[in-house]
Each structure stands twice: as C-alpha cells, then as structure tokens.
Amino acid sequence: MCNTYLPFPMKVERIITENPDRTLRTFDLSFINEEDREKFIYMPGQFCEFSILGKGESPFGIASSPTEEGILKFTVSRTGSVTREIHYLQEGDIVGIRGPLGNWYPEQLMQNEDVVIIGGGFAFTTLRSMIVYMLAHRERYGKITVIYGARTPEYFIFKEELETWDARDDITLHLTIDKPYPGWEKLVGFVPTVTGEVNLDPKALVLVCGPPVMIKYTLPVLTKIGFKDEKIFTSLERRMKCGIGKCGRCGIGSKYICIDGPVFSLAELNKIPEAF
C-alpha cells in the first residue's frame, strides 16, 4: 500500500544564502535513490513536506522546475524551529522529502495565452518554477510579463537568474522595491501600485503569489484593470501537516489547501469563506 507519510531521502547539494541578513537560503537537493527520482513527477506550483528527522517537518513550495532534472530546489526563510534546523544544514547532509503534494498552476490554460506573473518577497519560489518551465517551453505561451517586488534590492531571491531574464527579449521583467535605495534604477513602489501602472492587458492569465497583504491589495487592482476572476490564480498557504487531506489543519471552508489547492482561481476563492 502507498504510504504518503514516509519521507524519502535527498542529499543537500548546494546552499545559497539569498540575502545579507542570512534569513533566506536556497537548498538544491539531489535524489539518492533512482526509484524516488523516477516517481517524482511534478508541475510548477506543487509543494513538498521537507523534514529533518528528529526536528520536524514543514511544507514548502517547490522552487525548481520539472525541466531541471535530478534536483529539487527550496527557498526557506528562517522563522520557526524547523526552518532554523534547515538553515543549520550543511552541503552533503541528508534530509527527508514527501511529495509532490497539492495541485499546480493551470499550465494547460496558460498555453497560447499571454501570462502575467506577480510575486512578492520570498514567496517567489513556485513562480520561479513556473517561469523556468515556461522559458523551457517558450513557444507554448504568448507574452510573459513578470512583476516582482521586494523590500530592498538585497531581498530579491534568485538574483542572478533575474538578471539573465532581464537581458532576454521574450520576457518582460518589472522589478520593484518598497523605498528608494542608493544605486537602484528600476521601479520603486509596492506591488499593487506597480501592477496598476505597467499597462497590463486584461486578456492575459495572471498568477499571483506573495505575502497575504500583497495578495489582498493586488487582487482589486487586477479586477479594476478588467481581469476576470476565472483568469486570476493565486497560491495559498497554511500550516499543513499530513498533506493528504486528513489532519484538518489547512481547511478553508469545505476545501483543504493541501489536496484541493494550494492553487485556486479567484472565482473559486470567492465562494470559500476564510480564504484570506
């Protein structure tokens, strides 16, 4: 019988510290067993339970793209007891992974459409996965526009990649920070404001992921521009434990974020109490 509670082992290949105060670290993990690698079929937007035996388990969105074979990437903000232990990991250490769990961004609906991606802070992980996936299959999609906001230039994650994307002509990147910062020549302003100012075409499909307050203020801006609720998608988070719709922690209305989500359209969320 399938036992989704059992983690499989992965090895920490590479650790990248993403910001100067070292609260954000990205972990590249490699599969140890070939069998686990073959079974792990996923899409951008899904999540895993990441654990260190004896220290506990927490859910994180997968930051790598299925097109990056053989590795899984997670960016972890040091916040509580499990994430503190994850930050203590060294390259070569073994961790436990369960997944892929949950649903994914509506990739099929995105085909032949213009796509707008709006992200904030370190919640950019599954959006990064989606962007890398789209760039690997660039011919499938129309125009790709990305709005990404961080507190200061130092708080963007995946900085090198952002530069590469910025240099390409098949993706438009709007990077914005909260307040003016010495040497910063790109946009300044909060994500909702920038979203209203960059002339988005309301025919596009939008993916929004970020801190709850960012999502809360960005959604009305999108609606005002003319985006339909059915074409706005966001990813929700709760303190998920089992990941398979049993433990009850991620219930919102009659949905469980871990099996019915984490990705929901705004049209769906409008029907669910407690979503925001």
Partner: peptide, 20 residues
Amino acid sequence: CFDVSDEGKAGKGKRVRLWD
C-alpha cells in the same frame, strides 16, 4: 484532526501523530 511531531533526537527517534 491531528498533529504530526517528531519525538527523539537526530539519530534515533519516532515520528508520531497525536490527536489535535
């Protein structure tokens, strides 16, 4: 509803679920 928690140390222990 339940909680999932680790009991033990890094090298030896148990993962348990507890009513919540």
